[in-house]
């Protein structure tokens, strides 16, 4: 079994933390993993992407080939669309519907229409959800929670354990906040 995931967003939105959690879970589960990250200039508010490949057999390429991704997991709606050529026919898009408006004009309508036109898509009002639940720092973990049901190669419980592992150094309060965020995400994901 293999899963190719594209993580995308805007520099600073925390997509690498999602990758770190999945990476920890994959390693604990004895899966092979390759994760290509973007560092350097683009991290300054530009488009960022990380390809995450999980498999129980050997993985060769660090990059996800076009048309191969099972999931696009995005912190920003336009950034989800940017990587559609990587998605295979039956693949899922799980994305925040909250635009990050650091470009002018932001193509609000085009983005909304394109997302609505996709077959398999889960959208989350991450701004609203994190505000209502007072978890402003954990939007990325809410998104991961929403995708937990479709990642498949890793169970939600394995991801939960990795959230504990990764945030442990930051104290119990941060761990609890992220576990809560993960549960909220699962709930929203399950509804769609």
């Amino acid at each position: 079994m293999k899963k190719d995931i594209i993580l995308s967003g805007v520099g600073g939105q925390g997509i690498l933390s999602i990758a770190t959690i999945i990476g920890d879970a994959a390693t604990s589960a004895g899966l092979n993993l390759k994760q290509a990250e973007v560092h350097g200039m683009s991290q300054r508010g530009g488009e960022v992407e990380s390809g995450l490949r999980l498999s129980d057999t050997e993985i060769h390429s660090d990059l996800v080939p076009l048309g191969a991704a099972d999931i696009i997991l995005s912190m920003e709606p336009m950034e989800a669309l940017r990587y559609l050529p990587f998605l295979h026919e039956g693949g899922f898009v799980v994305t925040s519907s909250s635009p990050f408006r650091n470009i002018d004009p932001y193509p609000e309508e085009a983005v909304r229409a394109a997302l609505a036109g996709l077959d398999r898509v889960i959208t989350l009002d991450l701004d609203g959800i994190t505000r209502t639940n007072a978890i402003p720092q954990s939007a990325n973990v809410v998104l991961l929670g929403a995708a937990a049901g479709i990642i498949g190669i890793l169970s939600p419980e394995q991801l939960q354990q990795s959230i504990r592992n990764i945030f442990a150094a930051k104290g119990e309060r941060v761990v609890e906040m992220n576990l809560k965020a993960f549960e909220i995400g699962r709930e929203y994901g399950g509804r769609q």
């Binding site: 559609l84 050529p85 983005v111 394109a114 036109g117």
Partner: peptide, 11 residues
Amino acid sequence: VLRVPEGVVPR
């Protein structure tokens, strides 16, 4: 493969 929808601009 799927195309990038119209309207998606560089950031």
